[in-house]
């Protein structure tokens, strides 16, 4: 990244930082919980640190935690993470009008840091889907705060979790976060039905080897959801998520 000091003087960059200050508090709290949950679900400190730095996607980290700890095969772990992250694919279609014209190396950097909150703030600041001066600087201003807020709080959670007795059950905090996220996506009748199908299928088919119950449950829920949409063309369900 060229000319860090020039960046800091850019008003769009500073605006990006300022807009992220409030949301970063929430990110930090979530990072803390994720860090604690990783260590209390059986990860060593070094594994948890590597996970946080490499993966940088809170809900995918939490969702794959029981799978990794339970020895699920790689493809099931990856498929689950990909499904959890599919919302980013949808967000990506909306990033394109702003950044699609940039060289690919710059798009690659932008993509890795394009978390949910960066999306929400950016779209609020630049509602017109067209390139404009300052957009990249604004994005990096937000990322410059969002990324360390997430990583540092995750590290704090990892170190804290290492000192808390396992019997307290803090590993369950990860499940609690996911419960909140699920709640945020339950906004139509078909989403409720899809979630119920996923829950029942995952529990009843738990005896399948290789954690295939997760794959089966996802497939069943997606099929039922899409089938319900075909019968009743209702309003679009949108995923309202934060990482």
């Amino acid at each position: 990244m060229e000319g860090a000091s020039a960046r800091w003087r850019d008003p769009a960059f500073r605006r990006g930082v300022q807009d992220m200050v409030g949301p970063a508090m929430g990110i930090a709290a979530w990072g803390l919980v994720t860090g604690v949950a990783m260590v209390k679900s059986g990860m060593s400190v070094s594994i948890a640190l590597a996970t946080s730095l490499l993966v940088f996607a809170g809900s995918a980290q939490l969702a794959t935690l029981p799978l990794l700890a339970g020895g699920a095969p790689l493809w099931v772990v990856w498929a689950t993470a990909a499904c959890v992250n599919l919302r980013f694919v949808i967000l990506g279609t909306q990033w394109r009008p702003y950044f699609g014209h940039l060289p690919r190396a710059r798009r690659l950097r932008l993509a890795y840091f394009a978390a949910d909150l960066n999306f929400v703030l950016f779209m609020k600041r630049y509602p017109r889907p067209e390139p404009a001066p300052g957009q990249e600087a604004y994005f990096w201003g937000g990322a410059a705060l969002n990324y360390p807020a997430w990583q540092l709080s995750s590290v704090a959670g990892i170190l804290l979790g290492d000192r808390v007795p396992t019997e307290w059950g803090l590993g369950f905090a990860g499940v609690l976060v996911l419960i909140g996220l699920i709640g945020s996506m339950l906004n139509t009748r078909s989403t409720w039905v899809a979630a119920a199908v996923a829950a029942v299928t995952a529990v009843l088919s738990y005896g399948l080897p290789y954690k295939l119950n997760i794959v089966l449950a996802i497939a069943a829920a997606v099929l039922v959801g899409v089938a319900m949409d075909h019968r009743t063309p209702a309003g679009a369900a949108t995923a309202d998520d934060r990482t």
Binding site: A63, P66, C83, R87, M185, A220, G225
Partner: peptide
């Protein structure tokens, strides 16, 4: 794809969470 994408994240999270709570 757009339709399927709408349900996949919800389905994946619920599939992971439900067994963690009741089993």
């Amino acid at each position: 794809l757009r339709q399927g994408l709408r349900y996949a994240p919800l389905a994946a999270l619920t599939a992971v969470v439900a067994p963690e709570v009741v089993l």
